[in-house]
């Protein structure tokens, strides 16, 4: 456990020393919320948006965006760079188990995601009165499981991809899928029913987040899918991990 914490602390330090990566992931979603909220029409309840304010409806999609950026852009890129530049090769000669390195990287990415999401929720609340998640426990569970699923997919890409280019390419495709079904590109009420249904089961599970946000306990089905994805992909990535 000692080496796990040392690795985690080291990864956290290195992340903070890269202000660009850290800053973009932390601030982009916040800027988006602020920008959208600045448009008066998006702050008024509207028939087109099922009678709610667009900004309230869209908040869970911003959470999806944070999770996708951290899990599918930042995480695989860091790991692929480590591999490509021989940083993993350096560690390969030591007794440390790869799962510890993956775990440390995961912990740091999860922590920064949580920070980013908290900032988004706080800014939405303070600037535009977006209500806080009404079912906090349900929201926490949906968020943690959904985030776990997306990050496990990111880890698997990181574990498998031989170089940074391929990791980025592969992760970008998954990123687009997650963002699309998460309603970031096109608000979900404009989407056909079938796509909305698929979106419920696509990590990180935007519907569960929305339900919890509005005060309803999220449905068990999608949550189970998220948990299963996290476990399966996480285990496989530790198994197939390559040092070089």
């Amino acid at each position: 456990m000692h080496s796990f914490w040392k690795l985690t602390r080291t990864e956290a330090r290195l992340l903070v020393r890269e202000p660009m990566t850290f800053g973009v992931a932390l601030l982009l979603p916040t800027v988006l919320i602020l920008g959208l909220g600045a448009v008066p029409a998006l702050r008024e309840p509207s028939e087109e948006f099922d009678g709610v304010r667009f900004i309230d409806y869209f908040a869970p999609s911003v959470v999806v965006m944070v999770v996708a950026i951290m899990g599918l852009t930042s995480l695989p890129a860091i790991m692929a760079t480590y591999r490509e530049r021989g940083m993993l090769r350096r560690m390969w000669t030591t007794p440390v188990h790869p799962a510890k390195l993956l775990g440390a990287q995961l912990t740091v990415s999860l922590a920064s995601t949580v920070v980013s999401v908290v900032v988004v929720i706080a800014v939405g609340r303070l600037a535009y009165g977006v209500p806080l998640p009404q079912h906090p426990l349900g929201f926490a569970i949906a968020f943690i499981l959904g985030m776990g699923a997306v990050f496990a997919i990111g880890l698997l890409i990181a574990a498998l991809a031989p170089n940074n280019r391929l990791a980025t390419g592969l992760a970008t495709v998954v990123f687009m899928v997650v963002m699309f079904f998460g309603g970031v590109y096109v608000p979900r009420f404009f989407m056909p029913e079938a796509i909305v249904r698929i979106g419920e089961f696509t990590p990180p599970g935007v519907q569960s987040l929305l339900d919890a946000w509005n005060g309803t306990a999220p449905a068990a089905g999608p949550l189970l899918i998220m948990g299963g994805t996290a476990l399966l992909f996480g285990a496989v990535s530790a198994k197939v991990f390559k040092w070089e």
Binding site: L14, R17, E18, M87, R90, W92
Partner: peptide, 13 residues
């Protein structure tokens, strides 16, 4: 203990 070719550390470490 081993020192391998083509191995490095993160820039900011």
């Amino acid at each position: 203990g081993a020192q391998l070719q083509e191995s490095s550390l993160p820039d900011k470490m």
